[in-house]
Structure formats: C-alpha cells, structure tokens
C-alpha cells in the first residue's frame, strides 16, 4: 500500500496529439498495418458481390467483370494485394514472437522462423496457383 503520492493538482498532463503516429517510423508502419484491414475488407466485399453476381446470370457477371477491368479497380486490387502481403508478412513475424519455436532447448531466431513461415505460405500459394492453372478452363 502506498501512503504517499504526488499532489494531483500540481501534475502536468501532456496530451497525445492526433498526429502521434506520424512521429515515428514504427508508429507509422503500425498504423499502415491497421489500415491494411480496410483494403482487405474492401477486397472481400468485392469478392462477395462477385459471387452474388454469379447467381444473377451470365450477363450480370460479365458486366461486373468488365467493370473490374477498369484502371481504378485494378489499382485498388494492386494496393489491396500490397497491403495483404504486408499484413501477412508482419503476421508471420508476429507468430514468431507469440509462438516461439524451440529447437534443442534454444529459441529459433525470429527472422528464421518468419522466413520459414513465409516460405511455407509461398509454397501453399504456389500449389493453389498450379492447381488453378491445371484445372480445365471450362470447369
């Protein structure tokens, strides 16, 4: 139990400015990671709409696909992809912190664990891509 504390009346409370996240590179990168969710959510909404269009007939689907070919939408998807990659990489790094792997009693270096994660992720993505390409286009 503490019997002595500073007099609250004399304390100066510094306010945190709204631009705090511009002060430091690490804060800015953190905000980018948070922002990535907006783009990933946007991409998912588009995906859901696309699926909905499938049931609305061939014409609607074609029109929707045509719209997505516009430069604006391509740019959006490019940015969303960049954010998804950024988020994934930082996520894998996070995993190395949250669930450290121990090999013979010693913690695996984080960069190595992260690299292994990313490698596995790239591998799985590659398999999916190959499967996609190998599937008959008519299916």
């Amino acid at each position: 139990m503490m019997a002595t504390r500073p007099d609250p009346a004399g304390l100066y409370h510094p306010a945190m400015p709204a631009t705090w996240w511009l002060r430091k590179r690490s804060y800015f990168l953190f905000m980018l990671r948070e922002l990535s969710s907006v783009f990933i959510a946007g991409f998912l909404v588009v995906l859901l709409l696309q699926i909905a269009q499938i049931s609305s007939g061939e014409d609607a689907r074609a029109a929707f696909s045509a719209m997505l070919r516009s430069p604006g939408w391509i740019l959006f998807h490019g940015v969303a992809l960049a954010f998804a990659v950024y988020h994934s990489v930082t996520w894998f790094y996070t995993t190395s912190i949250v669930m450290p792997l121990r090999v013979r009693g010693r913690e695996l270096p984080r960069w190595l664990f992260t690299a292994l994660n990313i490698g596995a992720w790239a591998g799985v993505s590659l398999v999916i891509l190959i499967l996609y390409l190998a599937l008959p286009a008519s299916a």
């Binding site: 503490m2 500073p6 304390l11 100066y12 409370h13």
Partner: peptide
C-alpha cells in the same frame, strides 16, 4: 518520459505503475 503526468522538470508520476 512521454505518456506520464509530470511532477516537476524531468520527474514523472509513476505511482500508477505501482498499483
């Protein structure tokens, strides 16, 4: 130190941490 109330000059109030 940032984020703490300041008692005086460079002295911050860290009583909250002890709680």
């Amino acid at each position: 130190l940032s984020n703490f109330p300041v008692i005086r000059d460079l002295v911050i109030d860290m009583s909250g941490f002890l709680d």
